Computed example of a mutant assay.
Amino acid sequence: MRRTKAEALETRHNLLMAALETFYQKGTSRASLNEIARAAGVTRGALYWHFKNKEDLFDALFGQLCEDAESQLRNDLADGAADMLESLYNSLLAMFDRLANDPLYYKFCSILFLKCEYVTENQSIVDIIGKYEKMWYELLKAVLMQCVKQQSLPENLDIDAAVFYLQSAVTGSIYQNLVNPVRVDIKGDMLLVFVRTIIGGLQYCPTLCSPENKLVSE
């Protein structure tokens, strides 16, 4: 019996959710396609109709959740938003709020930071993570350059150093929240203070600026 497009999309969604749960429970290297198919309630053949292998599944899952997290920032950049620093601020607020309130996003972050083994046999998964980290770096770089052009950040901001600072602040905080959620509880007023501190570092930290790094007007 031929399946409808809606049924195929539902099966794909179920496989992604089953993969998320299996990766979360077992880690990326120990999770098997048989377990994922069983959790989704489909045959292994049905899984292969949608995804080539475990890496393809992980890539699709990563891509979907990254798109959900980054879409507004990308759209604001593409649309020429009048205040990209405010857009960045709102995106960071949304990211940490989602970590606190969206169980799927929490599980995905747990997989990335705690359950993805950086070992040789898991290298293909690690490479996928690296691909999306590079995309995130390029997006943040473009956002910060636009902020400099809009004069909301210093004209001599060292963009590469600023992106490294921003990534480190965000990923370090996510990791600390995952391993010690009681001590590092980024919610409510604490969330506002924390994100304002990150943005303030970009605006006022003198060591992120250098006289040699003025943005050349095009």
Rank of each mutant, 00 (worst) to 15 (best):
I159S: 04
D185W: 06
E212C: 01
N101G: 12
D83F: 12
N14M: 11
T11A: 10
E70S: 09
A40R: 03
I111D: 03
K134E: 15
C205D: 08
C109L: 12
N122F: 12
K187M: 00
K107C: 11
R30L: 10
L88E: 13
N90D: 15
S71G: 00
N122Y: 11
Y105V: 14
Y175F: 11
Y132S: 03
V126R: 08
G63W: 06
L208I: 00
N90M: 15
S173T: 15
R3H: 09
A94P: 02
R2F: 00
A37W: 11
I174Y: 01
N53Y: 14
D160H: 14
E86S: 14
A82R: 09
E218N: 01
N53Q: 15
S87W: 07
D76C: 00
D102S: 14
E155T: 05
P211A: 00
G41L: 11
M145E: 15
D127R: 08
D76F: 00
I129D: 03
A94S: 12
K115I: 10
L202A: 06
N122S: 13
D189M: 04
A162Q: 05
V179A: 05
T197G: 09
E7G: 05
F113V: 02
A161F: 14
L9P: 01
T4A: 12
L157W: 09
R12D: 09
L114N: 10
R12P: 05
C147R: 00
M145A: 04
G80W: 06
Q151K: 14
S217N: 05
S91T: 13
D76H: 04
I174D: 03
F108R: 01
L112S: 01
M1E: 06
A39I: 06
A8M: 08
K5N: 13
P206A: 02
Y48R: 02
K26N: 15
A39D: 12
A40Q: 03
S210R: 05
Y89D: 09
E55P: 04
L20H: 04
E121F: 06
N75F: 07
L47M: 13
N122P: 14
D127W: 00
W49G: 00
E218L: 03
V42I: 12
E86K: 14
Q25H: 07
R44M: 10
L112K: 01
G63C: 07
Y175C: 03
G201P: 05
L114D: 05
S168A: 15
K141Y: 09
N177W: 07
T4R: 09
I36E: 12
Y48H: 11
L77G: 03
Y165G: 02
M84V: 00
L57Q: 06
Y89H: 15
I159E: 04
C209I: 00
A37H: 11
Q150F: 10
N75D: 12
E10K: 00
F113W: 04
L215C: 01
A69R: 13
K52V: 07
A46Q: 15
Y175I: 04
A40H: 03
E86T: 13
Q72I: 12
S217F: 04
Y165D: 08
L88W: 12
N90F: 15
I111C: 02
V193S: 05
E70K: 09
I159A: 05
A8F: 03
M95N: 07
L112R: 02
V193K: 09
F194D: 06
I36Y: 11
S152G: 08
G63F: 06
E21L: 11
W136M: 05
S87D: 10
K131Q: 14
E155A: 02
T43M: 10
L73G: 08
L215D: 01
K214T: 10
L33C: 14
A46K: 09
T22M: 09
